[in-house]
Amino acid sequence: MNYQLLAQKIKQWGQELGFQKVGITDIDLSQHEAQLQRWIDAGYHGSMDWMARHGMMRARPQELHPGTIRVISVRLDYLPPEAQFASNLSDPTQAYISRYSLGRDYHKLIRNQLKKLGQKIEQEVGQLGYRPFVDSAPILERPLAQKAGLGWAGKHSLILDKEAGSWFFLGELLVDIPLPVDEPQTNQCGKCKACMTSCPTGAIVEEGVVDARLCISYLTIELDGIIPEALRSKIGNRIYGCDDCQLVCPWNREAEVTQEASFHRRDIFKEASLVRLFQWTEAQFLKNMEGSAIRRIGHIQWLRNIAVALGNAPFDETILPTLQERLGQNEILDIHIQWAIEEQNKKRQAIHDNAVRNTKLERLVRIITKGLPRDA
């Protein structure tokens, strides 16, 4: 078997299946084990207990699929057209949803394409042991992608490519054939720390290290309990995920939009009023989010996230009754609704106090100027 030629064919087949880039690496991630253990020991995984439960399996692909000696790593771009980052984030009455989740759930799509790639290789070599993974198993996909030449690890811990930035999904196909491996890219972040300084909650605690407990993506997606009160105001109108560290990255300026229509913005999100989304019934949520990654957080967590955003929104007469209608539905949800109500009441009181001050000032001006000549 000419494995060099086979590797070239695999990359061509991968692109024909829709992947923008395909790389190949060995399975040695031993240099990442100590860093992974430090991250877990520091508690940076938060409530994601499976991170600690699987231990070093994440750094040992051969334990996930015995016989594995190579990993084929793939990249699929997801940046939707008309992403409207700035306009959406700057309007606190509208919900901000991480751009990767505006369309269909990527897991099944990429897994199916990886399975087709495995079948294609099997047709070529006769017998193949393979297994596809898409963010669905304890595997260090970013270090694998880095070793496979798909990019380098940015200071926000995401994989960066000089042509695509970081707006892409990753997937892996574990195989048991000795394919030639690719060379890693050189880290090109330099002295730039824009991602670290722009994080709303300071979750990037050191270069390449994210404390999930502070990360808005973790707080709105992975955490199903109570969002710490000190972090709620920093979430702003982000109700599912956060893109801030990617938005400021210089390498993302030239990223091309995805050619995959499944990742385009759903029509339901073209006008994403917080009040309107908060009024969805559970049946409406399940129907509107069918086929979406958002569906997995469930209706209560969806409402919890929007309640926080409504608390952060400017005062509006419609918000208070909208929040109050949801009270009594769930204990954890009530905690966030009560907080939001208090925040809205504070803003209403501030508007009232400001109006009173302005009225007093106007009276004072009239008293002072009363009787003075017009040209005084």
Rank of each mutant, 00 (worst) to 15 (best):
F85V: 15
Y130H: 14
A83F: 11
A148H: 03
S87T: 15
E82Y: 13
S136F: 04
G154T: 03
I121N: 06
L140V: 10
A86G: 09
Q119P: 02
S98L: 07
L150C: 08
G129T: 04
G151T: 04
Q127R: 09
E141C: 05
I159Q: 03
S136K: 05
Q84R: 15
Y78F: 11
G126I: 06
E82K: 15
Q119D: 14
Q84G: 08
P80E: 08
L79C: 08
K115L: 09
Y78P: 00
V134H: 01
G118T: 06
F133M: 06
L140D: 04
A137E: 07
R111G: 03
D91Y: 10
L158W: 02
G151L: 04
P92N: 07
L128G: 05
R104P: 01
G129W: 03
K120A: 12
D105M: 07
L160C: 04
D135L: 01
L144S: 10
D91C: 04
A137K: 10
F85R: 12
K147T: 07
R104Q: 14
S90L: 14
I159D: 01
Y78D: 00
Y96R: 06
P143K: 07
Q113A: 11
I159E: 01
R104A: 14
E141G: 03
I139W: 12
E122A: 11
F133V: 01
A137C: 09
Q113D: 11
L117T: 01
E141I: 02
Y78S: 00
Y100D: 00
N112S: 13
I139G: 10
Y130L: 09
L79V: 04
V134S: 01
Y96L: 08
N88M: 12
G103S: 09
L144K: 13
K108A: 15
G154C: 07
S101T: 13
L117I: 05
N112M: 11
I159T: 06
S157P: 06
K115E: 09
R104S: 12
I121K: 14
P92F: 11
L158S: 04
R142M: 05
A137D: 10
G103W: 06
T93S: 15
A148M: 07
A153I: 13
A153N: 13
N88G: 06
K115W: 05
P80H: 11
A86D: 14
L117H: 02
S136E: 02
R104T: 10
S101V: 12
P138H: 10
H107L: 03
L109S: 11
P138G: 12
Y130T: 09
R111C: 05
P132V: 00
D91L: 05
D91R: 08
R99E: 03
I97Y: 03
D161L: 06
K155W: 03
L114N: 00
R142K: 15
S90R: 14
I121W: 14
E82D: 15
I139K: 12
K155Q: 11
S101I: 01
Q123S: 10
K115V: 01
I121A: 12
D77P: 11
A145H: 09
Q146P: 02
A148Y: 02
A153D: 05
A145G: 15
L144A: 09
I121V: 15
L109Q: 09
G129Y: 05
Q127A: 07
P81V: 05
Q127C: 03
I121Y: 12
A95F: 03
K108M: 04
L114A: 04
A153W: 06
G126A: 05
L128E: 03
P132E: 01
P143V: 07
Q123R: 12
L160A: 08
R111Y: 06
T93N: 14
